[in-house]
Design a binder for these strands. Structure first.
Lengths: 332, 332
DNA sequence: CTGAAAGCGCTAACAA
DNA sequence: TTGTTAGCGCTTTCAG
């Protein structure tokens, strides 16, 4: 691998000059510029990012630690995050925590080692120790998929509790009084917890309730959702709120397979608005979250903050209830 | 940020010694070891990966460049790739090419800049110039999702042509003679091309054919697939082969919505075996590809090759036809 | 078993 | 406008 000094020798200039034309910084004559550029071409010179990072104390990378990639909505968010980062000249370093807080902690340390300029995290539930390390290392981070005024971290996301108000309102307006919920696994997952809390809170505000016996937590899997379905639906249940679209697919498919009419007998709602949701029949009533905007916003804010040497701020995003065909008036 | 010499000062040793205990290399007394370790703890010392990479000429990272993350099967493969890399102490650098060969070329150069120890690419269609740069830089790479004996790159994947033989055989055995295909967009995509070629080749071997008028290329989208469906199904078509599961979902949903019985009137097959496919009704007949094994194998092979300073070899994986409910005997 | 010192490839003053 | 030089933080001979 040719280095900067190989280029310098070939172009008959100093390494400092090579650096200047490569980074288009400072002033140099057109002649020198040409010679350096053609030397670079001739040698297939590629600058060494490690050496550059060491000298600059900036890596030009953004990190992201997510629970899993096997969840379309995270994949979509990261896709947008990477796209925005790439457009601004940054490279993505991605790690998967497998929903494990300890592992996440270790990965955060690794990100500090790697010298990422900014870090995307999911949710607001993180080990305090890890957050302190980030602060100590001066690595900016944003927590996505959540929005909490109280959070000590910058948030780029929506309030998961509030995002459920709209679905509860919608259902109650349709006359539903016996509502059950199939939520995501809430352990170590503030988004799932908040969605349950939001449903419960809103129902109670309306004089209704969500007893523990009316909520099950299920894996992000259509098969698991189908299995759980029978246990949660009681004779008087007229509506089922699902913590995400995949769980809703399972509920819908299972309802159909046991001959339970949707929405005539049972209304079902999802969360995420995956692209398939509008195509099913009946089409799924769900909550749109804007994963793409979230990922893009997170990247841009992180980069702006780094380059201007200012702290990252939060931005609240909002979800939107998309009423389609899986919800209807409650049967009597 | 504390550096190695801060730790050295605090522990009353040289930086060389700190390096030795951090990397657990060479020999040192238990006493020194203790002192260094507690100095590291006290200071929250984190080694600098850039400096380390510069000195070692090894980064401890693996790169991956994929067409998109908005495709469940790539997301699954990368998830496995990252998991295996993480388990072996490597960090993932991920970039998305958006199916653009030029962009992929630039991203490959960026990966060289980053000093990745190994690189995962998708398919066998890459700019020659980029491949040469990889070679010149001594960066090992594997091409996944494809297997071609002729390829000059190491392959970890399956033969897309051959993988279609099984579905053609299955359909022909069921009596189908008029078969159409909804393929993925073939431009700059050897996997999509090869799947079309495989279907055509096998049909011709059996005295049948796949005229150009019987194949459409559609985006990876249920909505687009639904739109294309009507144009490709002719009155005598009894079976439809889809280039991936998402396209098949669109075909299935559209068939159902226009009252076309599956598989009685039309048989449909997919490709990928996404987890939803077994849950639909009728459940989708499809081709299982083992994305997880592929990602894991790619990471392990790359790392083994790097650490043993040997070239990476290819490994051929095999797909498996999963017969479910969307295929049946051809109507007369 | 441990320390001193050179060097990985690049950038940033400071001179010229 | 350009070159010289001193690091950035780490590893690795080579001495001791």
């Amino acid at each position: 691998m040719p280095t900067q000094s190989d280029v310098a020798a070939r172009a008959g200039v100093s390494t400092a000059t090579v650096s200047r034309v490569v980074n288009n910084t400072g002033i140099f004559s057109a002649d020198v510029r040409e010679r350096v550029l053609s030397a670079i071409q001739d040698l297939n010179y590629v600058p060494d990012a490690s050496a550059r990072a060491l000298a600059l104390q900036r890596s030009g990378t953004l990190g992201a630690i997510i629970p899993t990639l096997n969840n379309a909505i995270f994949a979509e968010g990261i896709n947008a995050f990477e796209k925005a980062a790439q457009a601004l000249g940054y490279t993505l370093i991605l790690s998967v925590s497998q929903q494990d807080p300890e592992r996440e902690h270790d990965l955060i340390i690794k990100m500090i080692e790697r010298g990422v300029d900014g870090l995307l995290l999911v949710g607001n539930l993180h080990k305090q120790a890890a957050l302190e390390r980030l602060e100590q290392a001066g690595v900016r981070h944003v927590c996505t998929w959540a929005f909490d005024e109280q959070s000590r971290s910058a948030n780029v996301g929506f309030d998961n509790r509030e995002s459920m108000y709209g679905v509860v309102d919608h259902l109650v307006d349709l006359g539903h009084r016996h509502i059950a919920m199939m939520a995501g696994i809430a352990q170590d997952n503030d988004r799932a917890k908040d969605r349950i809390a939001g449903v419960r809170e809103r129902l109670e505000n309306k004089g209704l309730s969500l007893p523990a016996s009316s909520v099950v937590e299920v894996e992000y899997s259509v098969a698991d959702s189908r299995k759980a379905f029978q246990h949660i639906i009681k004779p008087d249940t007229t509506a089922l709120i699902c913590g995400n679209d995949v769980i809703a697919y399972g509920a819908l498919l299972e309802a159909q397979s046991i001959g339970l009419a949707v929405p005539e007998h049972l209304s079902i709602t999802g969360f995420d608005d995956l692209s398939l949701s509008s195509q099913l029949s009946p089409a799924l009533t769900t909550v749109q979250v804007g994963a793409e905007v979230m990922g893009e916003t997170a990247a841009k804010k992180l980069i702006t903050a780094v380059e201007n040497e200012e702290p990252v701020g939060s931005t609240q995003l909002h979800t939107r209830l998309i009423v389609r065909e899986t919800t209807g008036t409650a049967r009597q």
